[in-house]
């Protein structure tokens, strides 16, 4: 699949890559995702954690939201706050859902922790009409710097685990992800890169620029 700038939407033109504090409260990629979801749609959030995104989607977008979360503590918190969440595993449990069950299936900051990202991605595209995937970009300059110049496995503000304890076993860069989408025959409807301050990077920027300066990426894919 070719990548052209016209498949992307984005915010204002790129701002300089200054390190500013990300606003406290809701994770920026969750805000971005919430803006991408049509109101009153059916949504499955895979790896929903404590339910922050589902709560946001329910209050702001009035969605019919469901979640899957691996950790028992996360599920308990979600159910106690009234969210429809099951304890389960993205690698194992998606197979039980029929085709086209949801308008959106969301995988936010989770794909890098799955055992088989390609299978998980194809399940997403099967059970949802659209898949929204956000992930940390392993091609970001700070990561290249840590590994390339310092010779150390990167530990950054967003990737806080040391190599020996990280649950993140399948990192990818923005370009890697785009290639995987192509292999799966998926169409990139929307692509957004967020810089270190959590702001959207300009859609006119070339891919190499995104891949170097985008700290996180959010993609909307469809079959």
């Amino acid at each position: 699949m070719t990548l052209s700038a016209d498949t992307r939407t984005g915010g204002p033109t790129a701002t300089s890559d200054t390190v500013a504090a990300i606003p406290a409260g809701i994770r920026v990629d969750l805000e971005v995702i919430a803006d991408l979801v049509e109101p009153q749609s059916r949504v499955l959030d895979i790896g929903c954690g404590d339910g922050a995104l589902l709560s946001l989607l329910q209050s702001r977008r009035r969605v019919d939201g469901r979640g899957i979360e691996l950790s028992q503590a996360g599920v308990n918190e979600c159910v106690a706050r009234g969210l429809s969440v099951i304890q389960g595993d993205a690698d194992r449990d998606l197979v039980h859902y029929p085709d086209d069950t949801f308008d959106y299936v969301i995988l936010s900051q989770t794909i890098q922790a799955t055992r088989n990202p390609k299978v998980v991605m194809s399940e997403l595209l099967r059970i949802g009409r659209r898949a929204i995937v956000s992930f940390p970009n392993f091609g970001h300059w700070s990561i290249r710097y840590a590994l390339g110049l310092r010779g150390r496995m990167p530990v950054t503000r967003n990737l806080t685990h040391s190599w020996y304890e990280t649950p993140n076993i399948h990192f990818c860069t923005i370009r890697d992800f785009v290639e995987l989408a192509g292999e799966l025959g998926a169409t990139v409807e929307t692509a957004i890169a967020l810089n270190a301050t959590g702001q959207k990077m300009g859609m006119k920027m070339p891919w190499w620029f995104w891949n170097l300066f985008g700290e996180q990426a959010v993609f909307v894919l469809r079959r």
Binding site: D64, Q72, S84, V85, I86, Y97, P98
Partner: peptide, 21 residues
Amino acid sequence: NRAVVHALNAAAASVSFVEIE
């Protein structure tokens, strides 16, 4: 219990599931 959850998922029903330690 999880077998019931999976069946409910397959039926696209609204379901929560908690395992208490």
